[in-house]
Design a protein around this nucleic acid. Structure first.
Lengths: 200, 200
DNA sequence: CGGCTACTTGACTAAGATCAAGACTGGTGG
DNA sequence: CCACCAGTCTTGATCTTAGTCAAGTAGCCG
């Protein structure tokens, strides 16, 4: 909130809410990028699929995060709601008009894209260098950090989604969960509720 | 040249050349990002290294490509010269002043960052879904495409560099080369000169 | 010619994919 | 209320890919 204050102000002033049922398409690869979004509640998966049907989920966009600021003409990815999602939608023309006259806003958009790029490069490094269960641990820790409460955290997405995010098969994700339990790094209450209990 | 014409004009007007011997550091992770660069000749490797010493080379920046446009305050990666490199260096203050008054330039910088992000996400997908020799093939084809001549293409970087780029060990890169030869997809003249001879 | 470095190849090992079977859960209908 | 069904998750067995360690080869430069 402190960070992208001009962007948030713009969304406050000119956006309207849109609701999505679980599993709906929010924006589709190839469609014109005629709006940008701010996630109000729920979890969005951003992914691309290759010719052989392999899917890579770059990020799960959550409450308070922007969606679609990275594309200018056409979406280069697809965004789908994991659970029930509410977003604020801002027409691209509104954004562009504001950018033309607002230096701070321009800096925020640049900073946002720079942060996205850094995160992707970190993900590339993680995919190459760390083991499956380590990537799962980082993912769970990260996800926990975005949720304020300190009880059990509920995962809205299924094992396959997690796998397509950290580069593992569904089965290997399951085994990685078992491994994290064995090492005492997490407490897995049910298959969707967990708590971080250790470090490393 | 048609694409980022304002950026190129800016470099023409206000930059100065810098030379680097093979293996020198052009910009260092953590240092202030007080300039941006345009590669005039040679090949630059852009990488980060994690705590365990694993290195990921995001990209090899070549002649005509920009370097450092993605960072605003501090470099989040390290750039090193692979061979002898000449870059045009533009002070960041000059860039920022130009950005403040030049809409087209702003659009070019945004488009550039958007393109970088898309490429990283494509790389993420490739790392997850394709085999080692397929990634090597894509890399070689890509590299060939950036070189106009249609004879043999010389690779300036070593096997380890290629490995750290496509996510393989040095030995596996070597085996992947052998595999590509076996399949008739490349003609490897010496260990550093090749030609694409097949598709897929 | 010798020695250095980068590359290649081979043997073994490890991580993870795949295929297959079982377990748990939530919802539906009798 | 309970039995069943479908979807999701877990576990097991086997196979593939690539990493590691080790040896051998090819240039290259003094």
């Amino acid at each position: 909130m402190s960070k992208y204050s001009e962007m948030h102000a713009l969304f406050e002033a000119h956006s309207f809410d849109k609701h999505f049922q679980p599993g709906s398409t929010i924006l589709l690869h190839g469609d014109p990028a005629d709006a940008v979004y701010l996630v109000v509640s729920g979890t969005v998966r951003c992914c691309t699929v290759d010719a052989e049907g392999h899917r890579q989920i770059f990020t799960f966009t959550k409450r308070g995060e922007f969606l679609g600021l990275s594309d200018l003409v056409v979406w280069h990815f697809t965004a789908e709601s994991v659970d029930h999602v509410i977003v604020k939608s801002l027409p691209r023309t509104t954004l562009e008009q504001a950018l033309a006259v607002n230096l701070t806003l321009r800096e925020e958009v640049r900073a946002h894209m720079s942060a996205l790029l850094q995160r992707r490069e970190k993900q590339l490094l993680a995919l190459i260098s760390s083991k499956g269960w380590e990537r799962l641990y980082e993912f769970l820790k990260d996800f926990a950090a975005s949720r304020s409460g300190d009880g059990y955290i509920a995962l809205p997405m299924c094992r396959r989604d997690i796998g397509d995010h950290i580069g593992l098969s569904m089965e290997s994700v399951s085994r990685a969960f078992t491994e994290l339990k064995r090492r005492g790094l997490i407490d897995l209450h049910s298959h969707e509720k967990y708590k971080i209990t250790g470090d490393l």
